[in-house]
Amino acid sequence: MLSDFGEARFGQKSYTGVIQPVPYRAPEVIFGMPWDEKVDIWSVGVMMWDMMEGKNLIRTLPDAEAETEPVYDDQLAHMVALLGPPPADFLKRCPAEKASKYFDEQGMWIGEVAIPDDSFEKAEERLEGEERTKFLEFVRLVVRWKPEDRLSASELLQHDWLRK
């Protein structure tokens, strides 16, 4: 079953505003930056993880969906644990009032929660051997801070993990 969660957009190359359910929300959406189809690539990676592992890749507050402006501390802290800190050029593109709640001028985490001790390797519990290696490689190619660093849909279709 495919769904757009009522958030599909048509007709432009770049958009602004909030889309995506909070657990699947791409970093550029969280920070209020312009976004494009690469938010969907992020969502594919996070949803693939959820389907393969039976649990969310990125932790969010349980009531995050109910709030008008979600609190992203837990979500962003977990993203830092998995991806490392965001690149400086990504943070420079973020609206200062949003980024400065979570990162200092050097890009160091200053959010109100601790960065969890987690990684893709620690979180992945179901796969073994080459399948595990290829799956983690796939996820790392799509779950990235910078949208321009994520593979395109056509590039992902050529990935060994999907083709197998």
Rank of each mutant, 00 (worst) to 15 (best):
Q106D: 11
A88S: 15
F103V: 03
G107F: 00
G129D: 03
A96V: 05
W109I: 02
F90S: 11
D104F: 03
P87E: 04
S100T: 11
F90W: 08
I115L: 09
I110M: 13
I110N: 14
P95E: 02
D89M: 06
Y102P: 02
D118I: 01
G129E: 04
R93V: 02
A96Y: 10
E105G: 10
V113G: 14
R93D: 08
F120L: 08
K101I: 01
D89K: 13
D118L: 05
L127I: 03
K101M: 05
Y102K: 11
E97A: 13
G107W: 00
G107T: 00
G129F: 02
K122F: 01
E97Y: 14
R126C: 04
D104I: 01
F120I: 01
Y102E: 02
E105M: 10
A99S: 15
P95Q: 07
E121R: 13
F90N: 12
F90R: 14
E97V: 07
K98E: 08
P95K: 11
I115S: 12
F120M: 08
A123F: 01
E124Y: 00
E105L: 09
Y102M: 03
C94N: 09
I115A: 11
A114V: 06
D118C: 07
A88Y: 13
F90G: 11
P116R: 11
S119E: 02
E97D: 13
L127Q: 15
A123M: 03
K101H: 09
S119V: 00
W109Y: 05
S119N: 06
S100Q: 15
F103K: 13
E112K: 15
M108A: 15
Y102V: 01
K122E: 01
A88Q: 15
D117G: 06
P86C: 10
A114D: 15
L127K: 15
E112G: 15
C94M: 05
G107K: 10
